[in-house]
Simulated scan of single mutants.
Amino acid sequence: MSEQLTGGCCCGAVSFSVKDDFKKFFFCHCEQCRKLTGTAHAANLFTLPTNITWTKGEQLTKRFDHPTRAFSRVFCTECGSGLPFLTQNKKFLIVPAGSLDQEPSKEVDANIFCEEQTKWHQTGLQAEKVTGFFQTKK
């Protein structure tokens, strides 16, 4: 039996649970995923559409489907955080890995669309590693 993981948005308005039964895990570097996430790549887990239960705030989600391409995004209408969504063909549930509260058991399968990876991301992987960059004023 698969473990249940929890997840949600940054502001806490939307939450869900999902079976830790992911079939694929990709870091996608394509231009569309960079635009949809505002980051260097999307980190998406793929599972069956029936593996999710929305526990709070599903009505506060909004979906964007590109009008001519097969990519989508669902996000919290309060804080904009990326949330799970069904692919347009409804074959898979895509769960943004960053929306999870726990680590999934699935390891990353591949970096995809690497030919579209940005130079700043490639060089950034070699940059100094710093923890606690932002300090809270006392």
Rank of each mutant, 00 (worst) to 15 (best):
D101V: 02
E107S: 15
L83M: 15
S15I: 10
F64Q: 09
R73Q: 04
S17P: 09
E128I: 12
F75T: 07
W54D: 04
A127E: 15
G132W: 11
V130D: 10
C33K: 10
H29M: 06
T77A: 13
P67K: 08
K35T: 01
A13E: 14
E115T: 08
S99Q: 10
E116M: 07
E78A: 15
F85Y: 11
A110G: 01
P84T: 09
K91M: 13
V95W: 06
V14G: 08
R34W: 03
F71C: 00
E3R: 14
L125C: 00
C79A: 03
E107R: 14
K23C: 03
A43K: 15
A40P: 03
Q59R: 11
S105I: 13
K35Q: 00
Q4F: 11
T68W: 02
T77P: 05
E116T: 09
L86Q: 07
S72G: 00
E31I: 15
G98Y: 06
E115F: 07
K23T: 05
S17C: 14
K119G: 06
D21A: 15
D101P: 00
K62E: 02
P84E: 02
F27K: 14
D101H: 10
G80Y: 05
V14C: 07
L48Q: 12
S2T: 12
Q126G: 12
F92W: 11
K138V: 10
P96E: 11
S2E: 05
P96I: 04
T77G: 11
T87S: 00
A70L: 00
L5E: 10
M1A: 04
F75R: 04
A127I: 14
C114W: 01
T136C: 05
S105N: 13
V108G: 04
Q117T: 12
D21L: 14
Q32Y: 01
Q117G: 10
G57F: 11
C76D: 08
E107W: 09
N44W: 09
F46L: 00
E58Q: 01
V95H: 09
C28M: 03
F75Y: 08
C114L: 07
F64L: 12
A40I: 15
T118K: 01
H121Y: 13
F92R: 09
P84F: 06
L93F: 07
N89F: 05
E31S: 14
T61E: 06
L36V: 00
R73H: 02
S17W: 12
V108N: 05
G57E: 11
T136H: 13
S2Q: 04
C76N: 09
A43W: 15
K19E: 14
A13Y: 13
K91S: 15
V14K: 06
Q117D: 12
T6L: 09
L36K: 01
K62M: 06
Q117S: 08
H29K: 07
P104N: 10
W120H: 05
L60M: 06
L60Y: 07
D65L: 01
L125W: 04
T123F: 04
F75V: 11
K35R: 05
C11F: 03
E31H: 12
C11I: 02
A110L: 02
F26S: 09
E3Y: 11
Q88M: 11
L48C: 04
Q126F: 15
G57W: 08
Q102H: 07
C30E: 09
G12F: 00
S81T: 02
F25H: 05
W54P: 01
Q122Y: 03
D109E: 03
W54N: 02
F71R: 00
S17H: 13
T47L: 12
T61L: 06
